[in-house]
Simulated assay, not measured.
Amino acid sequence: MSGRRTPVARRGALRTAAGGVLAGAWAVGCAPDGTPHTPSREVRHGESTPSAESTPSTESTASTPSAQKAHGAVRPAAAPRRFPGQPVQIEHGPRGRPRVALTFHGQGDPTLARAVLGAAERAGARLTVLAVGSWLDQNPGMARRILDGGHDLGNHTQSHLDINAMDETRAYEEITGCARRLRRLTGSIGTWFRPSRAQHATPLVQDLARRAGYPHVLSYDVDSLDFTSPGVAAVTRKVAGELRNGSVVSLHFGYRDTVAALPLLLTEIDRRQLRAVTTTELLT
Rank of each mutant, 00 (worst) to 15 (best):
R41A: 13
A79M: 03
L182G: 00
H92Q: 09
D207Q: 08
A79I: 00
P110F: 04
G93V: 14
V28A: 08
V129K: 08
I90F: 08
Y255V: 04
L282S: 13
F104P: 01
L265A: 07
A123S: 13
T103D: 02
A52H: 05
R11Y: 04
Q107F: 00
G24T: 12
S63N: 03
P56F: 05
A212Q: 01
R44L: 11
T191Y: 00
M166Y: 10
D207L: 02
H160V: 14
C178P: 03
V100G: 01
R114A: 14
L161V: 15
A79Q: 08
T284L: 12
A261L: 05
R197E: 13
L264A: 11
E53D: 13
H160T: 11
L14C: 14
Q89P: 11
G241Q: 04
E168P: 12
R237M: 01
S224C: 06
G3N: 12
D152E: 11
G254Q: 04
Q86R: 14
P195F: 06
D33Q: 05
T169K: 13
R126K: 14
L265K: 04
T38M: 09
A13S: 14
G29D: 09
R183I: 02
V21L: 09
P76S: 08
S48V: 02
H105M: 01
R244E: 04
A115M: 06
E53L: 13
H216I: 01
Q199I: 04
V259K: 06
T284C: 10
G29R: 07
T267G: 12
A113K: 03
L185C: 04
T38I: 07
G24H: 11
P195G: 11
G108H: 06
R95V: 07
T258H: 06
Y255R: 12
D207Y: 00
E91W: 09
R197I: 03
A17I: 05
T38N: 10
A143C: 15
R4W: 12
V43Q: 09
H71Y: 05
A209Q: 03
R194T: 15
L208V: 03
T267F: 00
